[in-house]
Design a protein around this nucleic acid. Structure first.
Lengths: 195, 195
DNA sequence: TCCTTTTCCAACGCTATCGTTGGAAATGAG
DNA sequence: CTCATTTCCAACGATAGCGTTGGAAAAGGA
């Protein structure tokens, strides 16, 4: 079973995503990541350097995944509500990315790695909104950068403050999930609507 | 200068809010809270018990403050956009509460203290939306609980993922702050609008 | 079989933090 | 002045995590 370098690295990355998403950079221990990956702690340091580097590494991976899984071309063609629904679904299935981003926002604000790469991702989304505005399918009464940002907030807030969602809405059944998704879709449409 | 028990407690609470908001429950040390408050570490344990209790304590205080500072009665009388603007302003001036809530959401989800007290706060907001809906000033195509939740997301997301906001929008000048506020107000109006 | 690479494992030194303790100094009420 | 209370301070033992190290076991290619 040895001799599988890539497999070992992958197991470490997967475990690191789980642990970091669950406990954050401070709350996570390298020991637990290693155990959860079924490898030795020493392997982690050997392949990924220190804890902070590993965090950056897995976050970069997750950003690449979401960019591929929830693509967007132009809101002249796709409905903004549908897009918001897809984003919501993604976060529901893979809540890790959103949690990693929020840990980063709380713990590391102001020192973000891979900044240029990440701006690239956002440029695509921005371009999709601008295209919609130019074709008259998206309102111009909210600036494009803010509009896409706010649409993302509709889909992301639920997991950002789950305790608030729990106290304010229904218990989290399948029905409630469906209601939430419907609200997000409707809300996004309302944000983008043209008169 | 001694003999001022309440003053000492207050200084500890204020320092704790700063430290917890900045570094989270894990990243904060009791030693730093004490130093920042200008008192001895031993005082913290004596007055507030362990670290977790202190965290709950200051969060409860901050919740009470916001409930008083950003009151809401009925969206039959007040415009939802204006309310969202007030919430945005509050978070801009006092970002601590939002950060504490998000630390809590990430680190302590599922074990929230003072749950009943906090539900009470949300019941007021919910009632304000329902009242608006009954008076026809607020749409009924989004359920009241979700509507208020999403309005709060519009105001709160900026500080939840500040690094994303920075990469997606303009540098954070006074002008950009004003633009953001305007977008939040407009977006909230759009969410609540009746046909 | 021999040799190189990967992996495991136990233990290391180091630092940080927790929560506690015992006693001394300062303070203000009576 | 006396005395109870508040505060400071230094140090405590215990634990936990970081990042490293040296060497042994396992695996597979030549």
């Amino acid at each position: 079973m040895a001799w599988d370098t890539e497999g070992t690295k992958r197991k470490i990355r997967e475990a690191a995503v789980r642990e970091f998403a669950a406990h954050g950079p401070d709350g996570t221990t390298v020991e637990r990541i290693a155990r959860s990956a079924g490898v030795n702690k020493e392997r982690v340091y050997n392949y990924f350097g220190d804890k902070r580097s590993l965090f950056s590494h897995v976050l970069r991976d997750e950003l690449a995944k979401v960019a591929q899984a929830v693509p967007v071309e132009s809101f002249a063609k796709e409905d903004v509500g549908d897009y918001a629904g897809r984003v919501y679904d993604y976060h529901r299935e893979r809540p890790e990315l959103a949690r990693l981003l929020r840990w980063e926002g709380l713990a590391f604000d102001g020192e973000v790695p891979d900044e240029e790469l990440r701006r690239e991702y956002y440029r695509y989304k921005l371009a999709a909104v601008v295209d919609g505005q130019e074709h008259g399918t998206v309102t111009t009464s909210i600036d494009a950068d803010h509009l896409i940002f706010l649409v993302l907030s509709l889909a992301g807030w639920w997991t950002a403050v789950p305790q608030v969602a729990r106290m304010l809405t229904q218990p989290l059944t399948e029905e409630e999930e469906a209601r939430r998704r419907a609200s997000v879709v409707e809300a996004a449409r309302r944000l983008a609507r043209t008169p």
